[in-house]
């Protein structure tokens, strides 16, 4: 029931994740951040089996930082997406697969382009203009299909996100305690005020 949303706009990517940490019918925490910073220009948001998610996210974070140190250059968004996908695809056929779905928001400093990749626990990867995992997709995709334009500014993106957030509040069976919203662009990763 976690919400993870991503919208790619003209020069950046917006990521929104629900603040609620739930187990069964209980909300255990209202300030849960479902993202990890992979490097200066890449952010990973995740949902799935609790336990697996953070373990996997931090494993990827460590691997990508290690690569950055060894090669003296940070991996680019598409290379990260490819790497993470590979890890999930490998895990799928292991004794105990990671049940983690992720969104990767990145900004490629060489091409000056933003990138949003969606990867599920099977290792299915697609690069999309906007994406969502789980039930949130059913409620938000129609809004995004309708309002999305590829040349939007961050503010335009946040406006659509507001609509998505409102729709989710009315339709989701439990209170998801609001969204953390982060923007990835040429300057790096920053959190923005939402609500």
């Amino acid at each position: 029931m976690d919400i993870v949303l991503g919208i790619q706009v003209e020069d950046s990517v917006i990521i929104a994740t629900s603040k609620a940490f739930t187990r069964g019918i209980s909300v255990l925490k209202t300030t849960d951040d479902k993202t990890r910073v992979l490097n200066d220009h890449n952010l990973m948001a995740f949902t799935g089996e609790s336990g697996d998610t953070v373990q996997f996210a931090e494993l990827m974070q460590a691997n990508i930082q290690l690569h950055g140190m060894r090669e003296q250059v940070d991996l680019r968004p598409k290379a990260i997406a490819s790497f993470v996908r590979g890890q999930l695809a490998k895990s799928l056929r292991s004794r105990k697969p990671f049940q983690v779905n992720v969104l990767l928001a990145g900004f490629d400093e060489t091409t000056n382009l933003p990138n949003l990749s969606m990867i599920d626990y099977l290792g299915t990867r697609v690069d999309l203009p906007y994406a969502a995992h789980g039930y949130a997709a059913f409620y938000t995709m129609s809004l995004l299909d309708h309002h999305y334009r590829s040349n939007m500014s961050v503010d335009d993106g946040l406006r659509i996100l507001k609509m998505c957030s409102k729709e989710l509040s009315t339709r989701m069976p439990i209170d998801f305690k609001g969204l953390y919203v982060k923007v990835v662009d040429a300057n790096g990763i920053r959190e923005v005020d939402f609500e």
Binding site: E71, V73, L75, R76, K78, A79, S82, F83, G86
Partner: peptide, 12 residues
């Protein structure tokens, strides 16, 4: 190439 979908840097 398979892991990162980009060519290996020369020095690497």
């Amino acid at each position: 190439l398979k892991e990162y979908n980009e060519e290996i840097p020369c020095e690497t």
